[in-house]
Nucleic acid binder design. Structure first.
Lengths: 217, 217, 217, 217
DNA sequence: TATGAATGAGGATTCATTCAT
DNA sequence: TATGAATGAATCCTCATTCAT
């Protein structure tokens, strides 16, 4: 029995099948991907879900991204790096004290990442770094290291200006970031478990206060 | 001579078949599972890999665990909770100052978790919390919250003893833990990307020092 | 700078858009299709490849051909049948001996099919006959049978003229063709594997020689 | 909404699910694959069909073969090479005249390949050579070339024995084989189109007769 | 006519899970 | 207990085909 030569000749019931064509498409897909990947992780994410959330079908994703992994990588690259760049720009143009700059950077990070969908990214990277070594390296260099450099610069500035004590820069930098990072990551992970009453604002305030207190001359 | 066309046809010849003490099996499996889950995450972990690492076959896992999820849960429950319990016991029996207890707890945690295979657990939970809500709740209550309670107790002790200032306990607790937690999680994730030279010991020392400095009267 | 994350976002800028004479399109497509189908077979051929090779887009193919199968059929029908017709015309108008006609037909076939892109057709049909029964029947009747009839006619002519012995026409016809057909098909398939040195001309010469020797009175 | 952590917990309706375990399995699968591949070609073959025909499920195929391509290659390698080997063995031990050996080899090939499921193999290779270059090379060397060498040996033997004329071995070999090969291939392809009445036996007889006639002193 | 973005059915492949031994 | 062959649901990805422009 020979195989059917033609696969389908779909019932041509008239229904308009797709609408838009502008190329906001890749962005829309990345945005949808961010939500789904951030919620589920890489492996547990179904591209069908991403597609549905983006308002397209599976096939469309492949028009713009080689495969699931490429989409994942694009997502990481294109969403988080700009945040760092923005911080760098701020630092560059900032004319106030190092203390003020420190505080602004911390609060900006929380506002731009901690409280938005981007909060999923650090958690995603922590979860998947082992499965995507090159991506992890990219992230580590373009996000983590750049972030550290940014913070180190602020500290150095303060030291030079006589605002801060002479400290071990690498250590001080990490100690400045880690309460922030951990809050972002843990809140994303345990949102549903955490007691309602916890006051993030006060947590941030206190960190900034204690940290500046500890590092000031 | 063409390559062997068939993937495997296991020579069912006599392989040495040592049988170990039966009751050790579940622990062996959990140990193997810890390594693999910690490296890959839940979804990307293949039970075949766990089995191989445990020196058994896939089927054997099902003798002891209902399914992959149950194994994952057992893994979380049975490995990390004892660490907390140990910390609680220490705190209970500790007779020195709150400062010293704080320092000991921090260093113990690093020694028992940060530097062992257990370091994978917090990262795993952060990665998978969204996919396993009840497990997340269990973890949050039996590990995170108990850990916080432990730390809060130490702080309270210090406050009562007049060692520490009167601070917001919840916030102070989280600020005590987060540099530790973040270091554990990030080091596990980015081990291969981090610069060689970073000195964790000094990081811990500095955290302890700064924190105690900040909280002391 | 990270790799571009998005596969393509075709610069919709003005590309020069020459329009060719419309009516040449189907032929161009068929020609492109011949190359690709002949190389890959029906199922493994992507219409995108055919389109690219024809210098059009996928959609354009559907302006001229109902679907992939229709293109395939058109390809077969329109390329190979004329060759047979040409042979028939030659035979009709030929006035020399049957021997000479035989030789000319064999050499013409080699020249027109064996050494051109058309050589892919017999191989294609052999490969896909099972999947396209009606097409196979069409091909068998319009090409194979007509070819046989042509050859049988030559043999009959020779017999009548007293040049050839009285032989079983069906068998003698097939024996006349098969070395030719096999050479076409096998050379197409194993072009890259065959030793360089093989001399097709001598193969043909010898076949003609031996065959005529065998069939002559 | 978190993803369901466990994928399935199949309705455990008791039905015996599989039976055999002996490892005739790979052979059974190859046999089934031969039938389906030979009928459809590589790309149009669905592994589900192969599985069904082999009496197993798709997954089982992957127990024994890396993937579809590996199965295809195994199929070619393991089915056809033995036939050549058998011919070589026959030639080695044969003590009669070269004429008789020639005749026996031709008839054996027809009996062992032309009239069995193996007839699909040459056609398959001709169809897929372009898509599987290394396999084509393997086939060309281990089947085609070995077959030619076998036939060349017979001819040489006849020449040395004074039975045959001194001919161009390469050409004579190919002319000896091609009517056979073409018949195998074309019959497989056009079985359903060919007129009932054609007498293969007589075709073979005539080829043997004419060929020996042509080559004899 | 021609384009090419979008579709979505189809099939290869994976792997958690079962169960006869 | 332990095995490992077998299963089959699930999902990625492809590509013929459609249709708004």
């Amino acid at each position: 029995m020979p195989a059917p030569a033609v696969k389908r000749r779909p019932s041509r019931a008239a229904r308009p099948r797709w609408r838009r064509r502008k190329s906001a498409r890749p962005e829309e897909i990345i945005h949808a991907a961010l939500e789904v990947f951030a919620e589920r992780g890489f492996a547990a994410t179904k591209l069908a879900d991403v597609a549905r959330k983006a308002g397209v079908t599976k096939g469309t994703i492949y028009l713009y991204f080689e495969n699931k992994e490429a989409l994942f990588k694009a997502l990481i690259r294109e969403t988080i790096v700009p945040v760092i760049a923005q911080g760098e720009a701020l630092a560059k143009s900032f004319t106030g004290t190092a203390r003020d700059l420190f505080e602004k950077l911390v609060r900006d990070y929380w506002r731009l990442v901690g409280e938005t969908a981007l909060a999923g990214i650090p958690r995603l990277m922590i979860a998947e770094a082992g499965n995507f070594p090159e991506l992890a390296r990219f992230y580590y260099e373009e996000v983590v290291t750049r972030g550290h450099r940014l913070m180190s610069g602020v500290l150095e500035r303060g030291i030079k200006a006589g605002e801060f004590r002479k400290v071990d820069l690498a250590v001080a930098t990490k100690l400045a970031m880690s309460p922030l990072m951990h809050a972002v990551v843990a809140r994303k992970a345990f949102a549903h478990c955490m007691p309602e009453g916890f006051d993030v604002a006060r947590y941030l305030d206190t960190h900034i206060d204690l940290y500046l207190h500890g590092i000031s001359k």
